[in-house]
């Protein structure tokens, strides 16, 4: 596993593997940073770090997983830098609750047309290609701050404490944002994926 530029010819070189994984790194960075140029920068930084730190790759995890781990930190760095420069929209400001208000009656019960229905067995859901298409589309359709916090939490697997620290928000805000993001996502998935079988 500790091969470097002087390895045999049959295995793809590290450089080849890096350029192969690059589009996926970019897709992931875009999802979080929502800005093509910033995503490009973060991926560039991650690739440079991967090349520089090549010797420290221990081979315990897959190489691509290791590079992905580096990218996570570069994305967080980028968010922190944006925050410092005041470029990051304050997360509290997306007070538009309309998409969620629509799911509930005034008394707090579900609206009839928004009542959650069964999605079936999770394993069957995860095997559906269509589910993943709609999942991605719904994620992209989220408001910026909801998408950012949701993907930091659920795709990057950071704790809400870590997210708050990076974005300098109160943990309570994080929970409110995640609650809204999940309600929006579930409604979007149900509309886009589950109900399409009936149309």
């Amino acid at each position: 596993m500790m091969d470097d530029s002087t390895q045999g010819d049959d295995a793809p070189t590290r450089m080849e593997r890096l350029s192969a994984v690059r589009p996926r790194l970019l897709a992931f960075a875009r999802l979080h940073l929502r800005d093509a140029a910033l995503a490009e920068d973060a991926v560039q930084d991650a690739l440079m770090a991967a090349i520089e730190k090549d010797a420290s790759f221990a081979g315990r995890s897959g190489y691509e997983t290791w590079v992905f781990g580096i990218l996570k930190y570069k994305i967080l760095d980028s968010l922190r830098a944006q925050k410092r420069q005041g470029k990051l929209m304050p997360l509290e400001d997306e007070g538009d609750d309309e998409a969620i208000d629509r799911q509930f009656q005034h008394n707090g019960r579900w609206q009839e047309e928004a009542r959650p229905s069964s999605w079936g067995e999770p394993e069957a859901v995860f095997e559906s290609e269509r589910f993943w298409q709609v999942f991605d589309a719904c994620l992209i359709a989220l408001p910026d701050s909801a998408a950012r916090v949701f993907s930091l939490r659920e795709l990057m697997g950071l704790s809400t404490a870590e997210i708050c620290q990076a974005l300098e928000i109160r943990e309570n805000n994080c929970w409110v944002i995640l609650h809204r993001a999940r309600l929006r996502l579930r409604a979007c998935l149900e509309k886009g994926w589950l109900k399409e079988g009936t149309t």
């Binding site: 793809p12 593997r17 192969a20 994984v21 996926r24 897709a27 992931f28 995890s61 897959g62 190489y63 691509e64 997983t65 992905f68 009542r115 959650p116 229905s117 069964s118 999605w119 999770p122 859901v125 995860f126 993943w132 999942f135 991605d136 949701f150 993907s151 939490r153 659920e154 795709l155 990057m156 697997g157 999940r182 996502l185 579930r186 998935l189 149900e190």
Partner: peptide, 25 residues
Amino acid sequence: QCDRQFTLLHEAGRRRADSLFASRS
């Protein structure tokens, strides 16, 4: 149902990240 959906979303996020970045050269 909603509770199951939130749990499924949680798992879906994890799998999405895995599918993007698992070592599958």
